[in-house]
Design a protein around this nucleic acid. Structure first.
Lengths: 278, 278
DNA sequence: TCTTGACTTTGACGCAGCGTCAACCCCGCA
DNA sequence: TGCGGGGTTGACGCTGCGTCAAAGTCAAGA
């Protein structure tokens, strides 16, 4: 019989650990002096302790180990537990690897640029939302800006504030066309086919923006000319995290468009649908 | 300005999280009503929040993120932090992979044998210890058992209880010889060259057992005939954990050898020095 | 104007597995 | 009998929030 300190030394664990296991009922000392409370362990208990440690090493929780020791678990149940654990570990392994790639790309960025920029790429999910929009093809940005402004103004005036949500521009350039194929409109708080007319006799069409479970996003000031930097940051993030682009990019204007319509101080969120790639 | 719930929805975080970050000083609301305590967030704070989330995603702790946001960290310090993080992640990645292999081997074992056995392989380190031993070559186990018994008896009688530690048998079979090359002796609590004679005019030689930082061990009853099962378990563990054997195997008799010398009820710990292999 | 009902506040506990005091008791040896 | 190195219980700490609980606020409908 050993006192707790010696037994702890032999088994290479801490005394606190042994007391804790005693408390949980995982490993009771062979004898406890009822007067002094001293715990006495027999060397015969070493296999039991080792079994606990081995199961713990498999990633099982102490709560799970308790019933296991009492032989109250059938092999098939144990198999199920282990299979679940395996799935968890595989998942966390994937996440850790992504983190590792991510960190490495950041370190490389520091080495290249001497600082950090555009750290703020966030993975989020967005729900489906009703949409009121106009799709059009443009020759260049010179054409786009007036149209966005026109739709912003028309929407702000003709859609009630309770219904209107946010101005969104979607890049529909499926094929690598020279021209810009954009869909511009407002997301809505509830479905509606309100009639919104744009100067020039065209009207916004109702549709639904699909939900996207995984969206790599970044927020940038709308007036900032460095928008391509933001796009680059998202791209780098997607690559570093082992993802692939899985749909058309969206630009969401977070600030309500105010007069004068100059997007001053506005924030734009760039959203790229992604999926995990091998 | 949004109340906490709306801002939380926009940013896809929980209100509790925002309150927590406020409390830590990581992200103060743009305005707090001094009468009601209500927090009001501006959409302009979204980038700040996203930066926090992105840094958190890199694996940094909130304590580390605080100074980062205040721009009180130089790029080189940040680089050092990230490099450290990388090392940590690489390490934990390796451990997780080992766990995964381990679990898979256990699942395979259940599928093969319908149950679990020999779960209790433990990785521990052992310190260097003075040793008093005799090395000899044997033709077979029939020769070994009497010798072990003789040394056990001689040691028990001729080494004081304060000095004597445990009976250990080391397999010195460096080359795959037909014969058994064993070293049998007692570990000691302190160095000594006590003169211990074995029946037959031979004496134990003093030496030192080297420390082993990583030792795969298993404990089995000494009388159990299924010792090869234990060896097999250790071997399977070593393989599943991606290790390699890095030295001679030791068998440590944990129970003091009692009269009658029959090893009844004794426990033997089998120890294999290992190192992490690729 | 009053009542709802949805939100918000602060404050507290919980979690997983022990590490780390603190205050006090016990054991064996000289 | 004193002492030094054990042991005991009990409590708090750690990480990053989730989850009540009690009580105060806000906006809209009757």
């Amino acid at each position: 019989m050993f006192r707790i300190g010696e037994f702890a030394q032999i088994a290479q664990v801490s005394g606190r650990q042994l007391r804790f296991y005693d408390q949980l009922g995982l490993l009771r000392p062979a004898h406890t002096d009822p007067e002094t409370g001293y715990r006495y362990y027999s060397i015969q208990q070493l296999p039991a302790l080792n079994r606990i440690l081995a199961l713990k090493d498999l990633g099982l929780s102490l709560d799970q180990i308790g019933p296991l020791l009492a032989n109250q678990i059938s092999p098939s149940e144990l198999r199920a537990m282990l299979t679940m654990k395996r799935a968890q570990i595989e998942q966390s392994l994937g996440e850790e690897q992504a983190r590792l790639r991510h960190i490495e790309s950041r370190i490389a960025q520091i080495d290249r640029q001497g600082g950090i920029e555009d750290y703020d790429v966030i993975l989020k999910s967005v729900p489906a939302t009703p949409f009121l929009s106009l799709r059009n093809s443009f020759d260049g940005m010179d054409e786009v800006v007036p149209m966005v402004r026109a739709i912003a103004e028309a929407g702000t005036r003709q859609i009630g504030p309770a219904l209107r949500d946010k101005l969104i521009v979607i890049a529909r350039n499926d094929v690598d066309d020279e021209r810009l194929d954009l869909e511009i409109g407002f997301s809505l708080t509830r479905p509606s086919n309100a009639n919104v007319r744009i100067a020039g006799s065209r009207a916004l069409q109702p549709s639904e923006l699909p939900a996207v479970p995984a969206m790599a996003t970044i927020v940038r000031p709308g007036t900032n000319a460095a928008s391509h930097t933001s796009f680059g940051a998202v791209g780098a993030w997607i690559e570093a995290n082992g993802c692939a682009i899985a749909g058309p990019c969206r630009e969401v204007f977070l600030e309500p468009i105010t007069d004068p319509p100059g997007f001053a101080g506005a924030l734009v969120e760039i959203q790229f649908p992604v999926r995990r790639a091998a």
